[in-house]
Each structure stands twice: as structure tokens, then as C-alpha cells.
Amino acid sequence: MKNEGTVVLVTGASSGIGDATARTLAGAGYRVFGGVRRPEAAATAPGVEYVRMDVQDDASVAAAVSKVIEKAGRIDIVINNAGVSLVGPVEATSDAEAHALFDVNVFGVLRVTRAVLPSMRNNRRGLVVNISSVLGFLPAPFMGLYASSKHALEGLSESLDHEVRAFGVRVVLVEPSFSRTNLDINATQTQVMLDEYASAYTQSVNAVRQQISDAPPPETVANKILSIVRGAYRLRQPADGRARLLSFLRRFAPSAQVDKSLRRAFGLQS
């Protein structure tokens, strides 16, 4: 979409990819609203207007979307970026931990999308950009619940795109690999750690930390999102070179080769 007068809402805009995206789009001339839980504590970015939004709360989401529409008249693009992570063995993950993660990564996207779609349908124009991950199409040891939430997001997004395109609305999945953000660096760990998994878990976490240290900054994803909103439509959009390679391998490499490569990348014995 052209940037003249285009209204963008970015969720989770206080840090990481959300902050970088809000800054990048505002700098490119878009009218950007940043959804944050605590606007008074947000590090303000030039050209970004902040609105209070907790994606885990229906009323908060509805109020934030209404406020943006009241101020700007519409929402042309929503970027569902707000997310949380969780690392630890699947066996050690509690129901409460799993529910909390899905409440943000899946139901949070659902709440925001439901809130913006009526306006987009009425205007016969809109773009829903959902921030997924390479773990939306690949497994990851000790990140099973996070990967599951991103797999769910991919299915939700692809189904939704079929439903809304008749109204001039499309859905895009952005699939980054690891980024140098607090979400990846300071991922929450399961409260329980079973001794049987401890050695493999430590090896995996160390391998991931090394990948994060070599990963691109969040601005790489932000620039990809800018190219997406400006360019031709495509549903799945790997956000960086590593993500593009992994997407290619997942589709075309023999499954045994992919499995072996993934285990090596996560520090596990074959």
C-alpha cells in the first residue's frame, strides 16, 4: 500500500521488532499507532502515536482499535507483532504456562484481528500482517509450545486469507529466524526442569544463544515489513536470508536431511 495517509497499527510496539517496525514505517511516511500495555513507559519514537493495548484483554483491544479509528478514521494495516516465548521440555510444561503463551501468540492475534476486520471490510481495503517465525514451519527442541503457537498462527492466517480476500483484505505471514531481541535473548523458561532432559536442554540453549548472537537486528525484520506493505502480495514472507534458506530446505530437502541438520543446529546428538 502507498504510504500517503495509510494508517498502521502495530501491536507490541514497545520493544524489539514492534518498536523497530513502528519507527521504520513512521519514518517512511505512514501514520503509525503503536499498541503498548503501558504508554507512559514506552520509549517514544518520532511520528508514532501510542495507544494502551493489552492483547490478552478483549476490552483493552476493542478500546484501542476504537481510539485509532476515532483519531484516524480507519485502520489500513495491522501488524500483529505482540508475542511471548517459552523454552523447556514439553513434558515439563504446565497447563498454565501453555495457556499463557497461547493467550498472547494465538488468541491475542485473534482478538486484534476480529477488532480491526469490520473497519477493513467496510472500507474494502486492508492488510493483516502476522509475525510468525521459522518455527511456524519447523520444529525446535525445547521450544515445542512456542513452535506450536506459531504453527497455529500459520494455519489461522492462511485460512483467514481465503475468507477475507473478497472484501479487499489480505493476510501476510512474516517468518523471521532468530533476531537480536529481548524476546529471543530472555525467553521465559518453564518453572520445572526434569533432570532427564537437563544435559540436552543445556546444549540446545547454548546453541540457540550462539545463533542469537550472530542473528540480524530487529531492524532487518522491520525493513522486510516495509517492503511487504509497499510491494506485491505474497502470503509467506521469510524475513531474512537464513529464514529463506530454511523455508527452501523445508520444502525441497529430504526429511531425514532436514532432521539431521536441525538436531545439529540445536546442539543435539544425532
Rank of each mutant, 00 (worst) to 15 (best):
T93L: 04
G267R: 04
R180F: 07
P176V: 11
N182I: 05
A198F: 13
S148I: 11
S204Y: 01
V128E: 00
V10W: 07
N105L: 04
G29T: 03
A265D: 07
G267I: 06
V174N: 00
N186G: 02
Q237W: 15
A22G: 08
R23T: 10
G88H: 01
R180H: 05
V174S: 00
G73T: 08
A59C: 07
S94F: 07
V164N: 05
R52E: 10
T181L: 12
R38Q: 15
S149A: 14
R236V: 06
R234I: 12
S247M: 13
Y30S: 08
V55P: 01
Q189H: 09
N81C: 03
A187I: 08
S261R: 09
V129H: 05
G47D: 10
S94K: 06
E158C: 03
L245A: 12
S14A: 13
V169G: 06
A115E: 03
V116A: 05
A200R: 12
S132R: 02
P217F: 15
G88D: 02
M193S: 13
S213E: 12
F102K: 05
A232M: 09
V32R: 01
L160Q: 12
L117Q: 08
N130S: 08
R31D: 01
A45P: 04
E70S: 06
H162Q: 15
G155I: 05
R38H: 15
V129M: 05
A45C: 10
S227I: 10
P218F: 03
T93E: 02
G231C: 13
L25E: 00
L245P: 01
